[in-house]
């Protein structure tokens, strides 16, 4: 999947946990889940589990460590999909 396809699928996964709507409306590759979207870190796990389900991938702990912004999340999804 390319970047745009991933973002389109990612947005509805992230949206329910967003606490800064303006930052979400102006989403960029550099947008950080915690510091920009103000997502509760306990909900980052929900996003990771939802991403696993939606993209049919398994995110190991090492990858999870980097899943704090949009850019890294896209890269991890692409890497995991390529490994399948």
């Amino acid at each position: 999947m390319n970047r745009e396809e991933i973002i389109e699928k990612l947005k509805p996964i992230v949206e329910p946990f967003v606490n800064d709507e303006e930052a979400f409306a102006n989403l960029t590759d550099k947008t950080n889940f915690i510091t920009d979207l103000n997502i509760n870190s306990a909900n980052l796990v929900d996003i990771i589990l939802d991403v696993e389900d939606a993209f049919s991938i398994v995110i190991d702990n090492e990858s999870m460590e980097k899943m704090t912004d949009i850019e890294n999340t896209i890269a991890i999804i692409q890497t995991k999909q390529a490994e399948k």
């Binding site: 909900n43 796990v45 999870m64």
Partner: peptide, 17 residues
């Protein structure tokens, strides 16, 4: 608030944390 925001009983949740 935690009870409303998070469902730790969901499958896979505890294993990640």
């Amino acid at each position: 608030l935690a009870r409303k925001e998070s469902n730790w009983k969901r499958k896979g949740y505890l294993d990640k944390l």
